[in-house]
Design a protein around this nucleic acid. Structure first.
Lengths: 339, 339
DNA sequence: CTGTTAGCGCCTTCAC
DNA sequence: GTGAAGGCGCTAACAG
């Protein structure tokens, strides 16, 4: 029905504001820019006109010129991992506070990374935060485009890359040490899927720590979820012929599954009959039914570090790749008998 | 050190591809557009050149002309709500499959909606999915700009607006009916925070269903989290002088908190000593320690509907606001004795 | 099918 | 402090 064809949906432009305020378009532009020199009176007039029209600068047109999108790509492999909602909430709020927006990508499978990257490039993001497995050549693509990347809880395969991690090795070592001190000698490990970086890292660390004490643990490979934790406990009990002192799970979700299996299927009481520990310190870990002994990732400090490092590198492209390692906090639950 | 000032970080443009392929710039443009008519030979040449240069069309420049950003704003009030990670994962993947990207916003407090909207406008999103409380005037702002919005699990205060909801009323009614049939007569309700739309909806529905059976339930207002569920159970027991048949919680997280409190503090066994029900059907609800009786939201069907409705409205701006209501599925756990 | 020509909305030198 | 003019990278009519 309307006569004017496009103007209908196209929002007001800086020209509209300019003519309403009786100034030039470039004055409007300056008024909306931080460093534009505009007389207070002029600025006021412009802002009033802008409010009246509901004008908001077009980020695309701006980005086209400034080469800055204020967009940060956040790539997370598995959003339903109990640990990531908190991470994501922290990230978006911190980035938002600094004037950046989050372009979110989640992967159905780890192998989809290439597809996701293709989706990222057109938006000329200013930076990226990646909690998914990235090959060196994929990291290189970011470098080639001059887009800073921070890896979350993983490091590059070969090339050094900026990253923020929770110290898996130290965490697992501490758990093993305390379990040993608690008198445990027969161990089982429930690991995550092979394609998980942190999963393998924790597995290696735990296994190494046990080996150094002359212990060869029983082993089960799970999928980082509750169900596979329960399956794993079952499998380990079989392997061990029912004689198992402690089970180390490489994340909390599996540890919780293992605890439930130990209690309901075997009638075990923790930590008297067996010890089970996890890793992450997710919400449910502290629930009364579990009271999991685990290592809590310092999510707030880690996300703060990621954002700070990323913004630094955006402002200052030359910076060297830095790797920050955060120690986890031992969460003393009642699921394990420690020394 | 480099001589050429900007060309350094500015990626290759369609002109670069054009000259490498020996064609005109518009040929490149057409080759990257779905409906562009280009000879297969030409297209091949162009694509090869593009690959060689690592060219990707600039979404900003494109959007400036087409008035389409392929960006969808997803606004979620409380990401750490156990229900949303699944929702968000589904949404991003479905939208991604349709060629859209997700611009994510999360709110620290419900009152921040206005700030968030200001952050949304500059990016000229094609549509929005909102799981946060939106006032009519806020919805109106979307309408004014011609941006379709779909509300998730809430409806507009006054003006009709497109929405996808899980039927809270029907769900609570069914729970009440079954609990009554199970012989329960003394009820408590643990509700969510007042500013939660779904929370109040479920509260009203449960209360009304009880009232219709001549029952006035004890009441506690929680915060939708585990801790307040436990607090609530405590408070209700006090109010009821220890004589409580059943507790209705308006989400699973609180129900789980209540169960833990009932078990650990009061030594109750469920469902023999008391019945507790929740709402949502989140992952932990099915864990062996809880086996919660609850109503599961059909998340997959709901997210599919949201995406379908949104894309429809983007393609066809004139569509009338439609409201789709999905029935929840009764999850028969062991936390309640039903009739 | 292909190249030429205008802009999209804004920022950014420049003169004034 | 302010306005005029020239693009940013791309798409969308147009001619050819």
């Amino acid at each position: 029905m309307p006569k004017k064809k496009q103007a209908e949906t196209a929002g007001p432009t800086s020209y509209d504001v300019a003519s309403l305020a009786g100034v030039s378009q470039s004055a409007v532009s300056r008024a909306f820019s931080k460093f534009g020199s505009v007389a207070p009176t002029t600025r006021a007039k412009i802002m009033r006109a802008a409010k009246q029209l509901g004008y908001q600068p077009n980020a695309f047109a701006r980005g086209l010129i400034t080469k800055k999108s204020n967009l940060i790509a956040v790539i997370i492999s598995n959003l339903t991992n109990l640990n990531y909602p908190e991470v994501l909430a922290e990230l978006t709020q911190r980035l938002s506070a600094e004037g950046n927006r989050v372009l979110l990508f989640s992967l159905a499978a780890e192998s989809d990374v290439d597809d996701v990257l293709e989706q990222v490039w057109p938006y000329r993001v200013d930076g990226a935060i990646v909690a998914a497995r990235l090959h060196d050549d994929q990291i290189q693509q970011f470098n080639d485009r001059g887009i800073p990347v921070i890896l979350y809880n993983r490091v590059g395969d070969v090339a050094p890359s900026a990253s923020v991690c929770c110290d898996s090795a130290a965490g697992e070592r501490e758990l093993v040490r305390l379990l040993m001190a608690g008198g445990h000698r027969t161990f089982g490990i429930i690991a995550g899927p092979e394609d998980s970086y942190v999963g393998e890292e924790r597995l290696e660390a735990a296994r190494r720590a046990l080996n150094q004490s002359g212990i060869e643990p029983f082993f089960f490979r799970g999928r980082f979820d509750y169900a596979s934790g329960a399956e794993g406990f079952h499998a380990l009990m079989d392997q061990a012929g029912g004689r198992l002192d402690a089970v180390i799970c490489t994340n909390d979700a599996m540890a919780i599954g293992a605890i439930d299996c130990a209690k309901s299927t075997y009638g075990f009481r923790l930590p008297d009959d067996i010890s089970i520990v996890g890793f992450d310190g997710v919400g449910p870990a502290t629930w009364a039914s579990y009271q999991l002994t685990t290592i809590r990732q310092p999510v707030r400090r880690m996300t703060a570090a990621v954002v700070a490092m990323l913004l630094e590198r955006i402002a200052n492209p030359g910076m060297a790749p830095e790797q920050r390692l955060f120690g986890g906090e031992l969460l003393l639950g009642r699921s394990a008998r420690l020394g």
